[in-house]
Amino acid sequence: MNAASRFRDAPGAAPRSLRLMLDGVPVLARPGESVAAALLAHSGGATRQTPVTGAGRAPYCMMGVCFDCLVTIDGHPNVQACMVSAREGMVIQRQIGARRLGDQP
């Protein structure tokens, strides 16, 4: 799943100073960028498996329309990674199939 990223840094791009965890692996992010962008910079592989057939998908539209970038962020499942800014220490999991129910409140 950890194919090389399909993107490279533009000239003069800011350093990736934030550290996120993706399924236990550190992922670096730039302040101000979305979680989806950080995941795309990290790897060219799938970031979720669909609940219908288990097919691999990665962030697609980057503007909140397609819902292909769903991941679990800090325990919240099915979050649109393209609509959330990366923050230091975020814990992210690839969304594998349908989500689970939350714990008993």
Binding site: A3, R6, F7, R8, D9, A10, G12, A13, A14, R30, G32, E33, S34, A37, A38, L40, A41, G44, G45, A46, T47, G56, R57, A58, P59, Y60, C61, M62, M63
Partner: peptide
Amino acid sequence: PGLMPAGAAQILMKQSGMV
């Protein structure tokens, strides 16, 4: 994975400095 709209790539260029 590996297919995106061109507009999405542009968003990544603008917001993340990724090309």
